[in-house]
Design a protein around this nucleic acid. Sequence first.
DNA 1: AATTTCATCAACCGCAGTTTT
DNA 2: AAAAACTGCGGTTGATGAAAT
Length: 528
Amino acid sequence: MVIGITNESEDGALSTDSPLSNDSDNYGESSNGGVVLKKGPWTSAEDAILVDYVKKHGEGNWNAVQKHSGLWRCGKSCRLRWANHLRPNLKKGAFTSEEERVIIELHAKMGNKWARMAAHLPGRTDNEIKNYWNTRIKRRQRAGLPLYPSELCLQTHQENHLSSPGIYGGDKGFHDVLQSDDYETPDVMVDSFNILSYTPQFPNTSASGSLSNGFGFPQFHSYVPQMVGFQKCAEELDEPMSDYSGGVADEAPPFDRAQDDACENKMFQSFGLCFQYDPDHTNKLLPVGENQDIPFMSNGYLSASKPLSGAEKLELPSLQYEETGLGVYNNAPKSFDSFFHSPLSGQLPSCCPSPRSSGLLEALLYEAKSLSKSDNQFSDKVTSSTISHGDLTGGSTLNTCSTEFKGNLDPTSPLGNSMGSSFNRCTPPTPTNGSTLEEKIHDEGWILDGKTTFDCSRPDAILGSCWVEQSASSSKKRSHVTDAISSLLGDDMGDEYSTTTYASVSNWGLSSCTWNNMPAVCQMSDLP
DNA sequence: AATTTCATCAACCGCAGTTTT
DNA sequence: AAAAACTGCGGTTGATGAAAT
């Protein structure tokens, strides 16, 4: 720590000729209306000024600090300094094991919502938590370990089914969290592209096992950095990835790990994130399993070894395809990919987690589900809190997606692989003649032996989730879905959309998925 | 002993949402 | 209603010290 050590005068006066102000390389300056504002580490003198100011004027109005206190800092800097270092009751020092546990649990629920997580950890700042988490990610990705301990996955999974109080340690149950107004659903879409280069295996275990313990995490996207690092790790070690996959993590990776890390090794398997490192140095991460001929592994575009430059930075919603003109084969996997970073359809609790997981459709469905669930409880609040704002998938993303979706409906569009055309192409028949959708789906062979077959030529299926699961057997609820989607996309659009989507989406929700089927039914050659 | 790597932390930046003018 | 100002958040960067080589 350098704060308060360098270049401060003991009398508390700011020294304008100090290296702090002169060394712009290190400390910088910013201009604010002709006033040069200081940047870089705070001195204790500055701290004192700020503390004094807050004592007199209270928190807030941070831009006034500079005007009234003579502190040459911008308001943002003042706020940050106060919040992270000067405000009372701040805890300093390492996180306790209990705090760490809470952070992990919270992150599993919330994702990178540091400020919210901080609210659950008195005396801790979002910055601290963020730093801790990032460090943790690095550490674990280097070791090829999952981010979340198995117990947590299991616990969450069980809670999802039992509707038991959440793992927050109390203040909010899982459902409360998911449904409360202030719960903001995880933002998977941001990261859904990251993993393009690191396509996970389709786990060989049933959905109720692996998937729900890993992919089923609302925050699965947080796993992405680890996956990125995982290959790196293997490469650095010059060890085949299969050492950790095929036999899968029977042995702990050769790292001297903290105990919690070690005990989480076993989770690596249960996460189902198993890869084979391509021994031929074609640098693909190949799924370990009976069928390695996964199309989006072999089309180059998704080659694991060469992460698309910028892929990790892409902040497109999962359904906002780039207009690359590369055709359907490029985009289908994206959808596919996004799907696998979404909560697992068949295993999701009835409380249906967030829309954040896989983009537009799930956002829509989430909304629909909200409508459906609340039946008599629906209020504008749901809509506004779920859809309207910012860091939620809903808001801008949804709008954007809607726009794109509309634009892509044209089957003649260059983006013929887009949602719209895909829906048109791939949607199973909607129920008619009085049969329920579920019956229809079974009749039409969409559900085979209680297993959901998956056809990756069907991006609509890819996009699906379980959120309409309940709706499928209820025409009343179905109308909620339709209505909700209609209301979100506009009536005309919504009607068309929901009618077609509903059926295919439900395909995913009606039974637990046996993922063994995936490679078998998802061949590149199957794609149109 | 020198160098490299890693872990930690503080702070900045850009963006987005909200409030005020 | 629009613009500006303010506020908060999350991502990222850079400095530093410790550990490893």
